[in-house]
């Protein structure tokens, strides 16, 4: 059971109030019609499954109904950072 800081409400809330919506920072191709099937498939289906830092998108569903990003360690379940949509993460995996 996570304890999640909502950057819009400005405080921690119980996980029950949130929905996880998967990997963050997946840009919808600006011109889908000119994507190859392969490119479209990458966008549509290919997801990271990292051991360690993962950038995810969540929604404060039973709350302010706002989406936000979370950087989470998939091993320890630590939440390293939350940041608003449109912002970039400051905690990233060493590449």
């Amino acid at each position: 059971m996570f304890y999640i800081y909502c950057p819009h409400c400005g405080e921690h809330r119980e996980e029950e109030e949130f929905h996880a919506k998967g990997q963050a920072h997946l840009a919808r191709p600006l011109d889908p019609d000119n994507c190859t099937d392969h490119e479209w498939g990458e966008y549509l289906y290919m997801r990271k499954n990292p051991r360690g830092l993962h950038h995810e998108i969540w929604i404060h569903a039973t709350g302010c109904r706002k989406f936000f990003n979370m950087t989470r360690d998939t091993v320890s379940y630590e939440i390293k950072e939350v940041y608003k949509i449109g912002e970039r993460p400051s905690v990233v995996a060493a590449s």
Binding site: H19, R28, I57, I59, A61, F67, G86
Partner: peptide, 13 residues
């Protein structure tokens, strides 16, 4: 509703 909000908040704000 969540689908609409997702696209509005993340794709087409």
């Amino acid at each position: 509703l969540e689908w609409l909000e997702l696209y509005h908040q993340t794709e087409w704000p």
